[in-house]
Simulated scan of single mutants.
Amino acid sequence: MNIYLTIAGFLSAIAAVMHLGCIYFGAPWYRFFGAGEQMARLAEQGSPKPTWITCGVALVLSVWALYAFSGAGIIQKLPFTRLVLIAICLVYTTRGIAGFFFILSPMGRSVEFWIWSSTICLVIGLLHCIGLKLQWVSLSL
């Protein structure tokens, strides 16, 4: 079992559940987690847009968690595990690094949102990268 991919998978799964929490608890959660005032208002107005967007994010994070667990050896090997984990590493680390550039121009979100979310994405991305490096030989394309 690869501890780095295991932790990364659990963190992605937690993030997915937190996104589902935003759907269930509505505008206050969208605001608290920094989704932006527009998303919070749309949720308050009963618009389906925040639900669909957030469901999509939760689905992607859930799939990423499954691939991390697959790479860690917790569940059976999924197709293209190595390639998918490479992509996950790239997305998380790129998002983590890029987010710090939005601190000066936060685009409707708070500076705290960009700092926290970018740090979290960078940590999860690095966990994926370390775990992938350790599992590289045992993972098939």
Rank of each mutant, 00 (worst) to 15 (best):
residue 39 M to W: 11
residue 45 Q to W: 01
residue 53 I to M: 14
residue 56 G to I: 02
residue 68 A to P: 00
residue 119 T to R: 07
residue 121 C to L: 06
residue 129 C to E: 12
residue 132 L to Q: 07
residue 38 Q to G: 00
residue 103 I to C: 09
residue 66 L to P: 04
residue 28 P to E: 13
residue 69 F to D: 04
residue 131 G to R: 05
residue 123 V to T: 07
residue 129 C to M: 14
residue 31 R to C: 07
residue 95 R to P: 00
residue 121 C to I: 01
residue 103 I to V: 15
residue 38 Q to C: 00
residue 67 Y to W: 15
residue 93 T to L: 14
residue 70 S to G: 11
residue 110 S to A: 03
residue 44 E to N: 03
residue 67 Y to A: 01
residue 125 G to K: 06
residue 135 Q to Y: 01
residue 74 I to N: 03
residue 94 T to G: 14
residue 120 I to C: 07
residue 137 V to F: 06
residue 53 I to K: 08
residue 89 C to R: 01
residue 122 L to K: 05
residue 133 K to T: 07
residue 77 K to W: 00
residue 71 G to S: 08
residue 72 A to V: 04
residue 126 L to E: 04
residue 61 L to G: 01
residue 106 P to A: 05
residue 102 F to N: 15
residue 124 I to K: 02
residue 36 G to W: 08
residue 78 L to G: 09
residue 100 F to S: 13
residue 88 I to M: 12
residue 108 G to N: 11
residue 45 Q to A: 12
residue 31 R to I: 02
residue 130 I to F: 07
residue 65 A to M: 03
residue 69 F to Q: 08
residue 32 F to Y: 13
residue 50 P to I: 05
residue 98 A to H: 12
residue 87 A to Q: 06
residue 38 Q to S: 08
residue 65 A to F: 05
residue 122 L to A: 14
residue 137 V to S: 13
residue 39 M to V: 11
residue 97 I to E: 05
residue 83 L to I: 12
residue 116 W to E: 02
residue 65 A to K: 01
residue 36 G to E: 11
residue 125 G to A: 09
residue 40 A to C: 05
residue 103 I to F: 02
residue 124 I to W: 02
residue 120 I to Y: 08
residue 31 R to L: 14
residue 98 A to Y: 09
residue 129 C to P: 00
residue 67 Y to Q: 03
residue 36 G to Q: 05
residue 65 A to P: 06
residue 90 L to N: 02
residue 125 G to D: 10
residue 130 I to Y: 03
residue 94 T to K: 02
residue 43 A to D: 08
residue 26 G to C: 04
residue 54 T to N: 07
residue 80 F to D: 14
residue 42 L to A: 14
residue 103 I to N: 07
residue 128 H to L: 10
residue 53 I to S: 11
residue 49 K to W: 11
residue 104 L to D: 08
residue 62 S to P: 00
residue 35 A to P: 01
residue 99 G to Y: 05
residue 27 A to P: 04
residue 69 F to R: 05
residue 45 Q to V: 00
residue 121 C to G: 06
residue 90 L to E: 10
residue 116 W to Y: 09
residue 90 L to C: 14
residue 64 W to D: 10
residue 66 L to E: 04
residue 110 S to R: 06
residue 55 C to V: 13
residue 105 S to N: 15
residue 120 I to V: 15
residue 101 F to G: 15
residue 43 A to M: 11
residue 85 L to E: 09
residue 48 P to T: 11
residue 83 L to N: 15
residue 71 G to D: 12
residue 139 L to T: 06
residue 126 L to T: 13
residue 65 A to H: 03
residue 46 G to F: 10
residue 92 Y to V: 07
residue 99 G to Q: 06
residue 100 F to Q: 12
residue 74 I to L: 13
residue 49 K to I: 15
residue 135 Q to C: 13
residue 27 A to R: 03
residue 27 A to I: 00
residue 63 V to G: 14
residue 118 S to W: 03
residue 108 G to K: 10
residue 27 A to F: 01
residue 101 F to I: 02
residue 133 K to H: 05
residue 79 P to M: 08
residue 33 F to K: 01
residue 90 L to G: 11
residue 79 P to Q: 09
residue 130 I to P: 00
residue 91 V to W: 09
residue 111 V to E: 06
residue 57 V to K: 02
residue 65 A to Q: 04
residue 127 L to Y: 04
residue 108 G to C: 10
residue 74 I to P: 00
residue 123 V to R: 01
residue 37 E to S: 14
